[in-house]
Design a protein around this nucleic acid. Structure first.
Lengths: 240, 240
DNA sequence: CGACATGTTGAACCTCATCAACCGACGTGG
DNA sequence: CCACGTCGGTTGATGAGGTTCAACATGTCG
């Protein structure tokens, strides 16, 4: 093991090396970040951070899907954010969060102790800038969801959600053939979780999915797998 | 006029000097920011930034209230953010925004050319940190609103909205008497705008306000002025 | 004065929540 | 092995909360 920039890092084989905040780092900075990081696996359903409870780490989501959710005294729940591989978990400069953070699938994290990470962010300009920009993007997405929750009907909500997942799978799965390809992906969420994300009930989600299936806009294979033969038909139902 | 730190700045008499991003600046930094700033007034209803249209300035909101809103092809509108004095307008490092920014009351702004401001933010660590933190707060507020739009009923939505305004007026209006005081404030928004903020219709807003009035939770004076005799009664209706 | 904007209230309607029954898959224990 | 409960999902019947449509009140402005 050398100490020069040519040494091998865990990061070099990391699937999200160029999608997470790490993408903003020089080789030397990456080595420093790597030095304070540790990997951790979690099973679907496990809670990563509790609302209002102190946390002592930040993390990159390497693999899997994570939900951020709030709930009311009587149990009503709303998902206020979905995190995918490459996303950053935790609020810099704070020690707790006003929502629960929970693995919805099996998950792999790359964790950093808070203080050590903040010191790096303080010194590595690219890192703090990147975190800032990610936060601005997140805010934009939250505002899109405000429009969805406040003004869209059940049909439009489902269409928008599926369209979002479809585009995601398009971006990452197969690359750049620009013919009108068939999109297919697995739903990371159960019907109950979809309902909590869209401000609906399980039954309404189920009915709307059936309706989209009967209309030929999507195919549903074994509940969780979705095929979208024509994305533009789906897009037309989003309401924007 | 001297050039030393003792010189008088517009900022020294500014109502938001210690609430806006300016609060993060040293005297010297403030002088530099002041040098690139200019004041501007707008009338209620004027648009400050159009969605998807290039903007060439950022601004501090000195006085008045500003709304951020999105709308759908068929005209449905959702307010995705409300800005009050001290808040920062514009998205750093971007030249356009995915929503309209509009004065809902008469407004005074303190504007900065984008490039010049970004250069300062780049050099003044406190400034960029402050912008980052404001953005994180804004994200938290947006997520609170996701819960409201997705899960609360009309009554809870109105109660939450009034409670929010009540707390604001409490913080800034009269100061620190900690007796259970009577809260009173003016609604900055019309019924139509409240509806657009809460994901409701005008009629529902009007009915719920009347219902709260009949229940003795609020008094309504000439449509726009609200008196809250007992904040805890209002708080109990918010649903959290 | 009439035209218009803003807000309130009533009546009818509709979307979605609620309640309930049912299905298939899965795991467990007698 | 099968009976049983559980879990995730679908579908139907019913009803409530909000939307829609409409009438009306009030205040403002030309």
């Amino acid at each position: 093991m050398g100490t020069g920039p040519a040494q091998q890092l865990t990061c070099d084989r990391c699937a999200i090396r160029h999608r997470a905040v790490c993408a903003a780092l020089s080789r030397e900075e990456l080595i420093a970040l790597n030095a304070i990081s540790s990997r951790k696996r979690l099973r679907a359903g496990e809670t990563i951070m509790w609302a209002q409870e102190p946390v002592d780490f930040f993390a990159n989501l390497i693999e899997g899907v994570v939900k951020l959710s709030k709930s009311m005294a009587d149990g009503r729940e709303q998902i206020v954010g979905l995190m995918f591989p490459g996303d950053f978990l935790g609020r810099p400069y704070a020690r707790e969060q006003p929502f629960n953070v929970e693995a919805v699938t099996d998950v792999r994290l790359c964790r950093f102790p808070q203080r050590a990470f903040e010191d790096l962010a303080h010194n590595f300009e690219g890192l703090s800038e990147r975190l800032f920009n990610d936060t601005l993007d997140e805010l934009d997405r939250a505002r899109d969801w405000l429009l969805l929750l406040g003004r869209k009907n059940a049909q439009e909500k489902l269409a928008t959600f599926l369209h979002l997942l479809g585009r995601r799978s398009q971006e990452f799965g197969c690359a750049h053939t620009n013919q009108p390809q068939v999109i297919a992906f697995d739903l990371p969420l159960s019907r109950a979780q979809i309902a909590a994300y869209l401000g609906l009930t399980i039954e309404t989600v189920s009915r709307q999915l059936s309706k989209l299936r009967r209309a030929g806009v999507i195919e549903i294979v074994e509940n969780r797998h979705i095929v979208v033969p024509r994305m533009d038909a789906l897009e037309a139902l989003c309401g924007e």
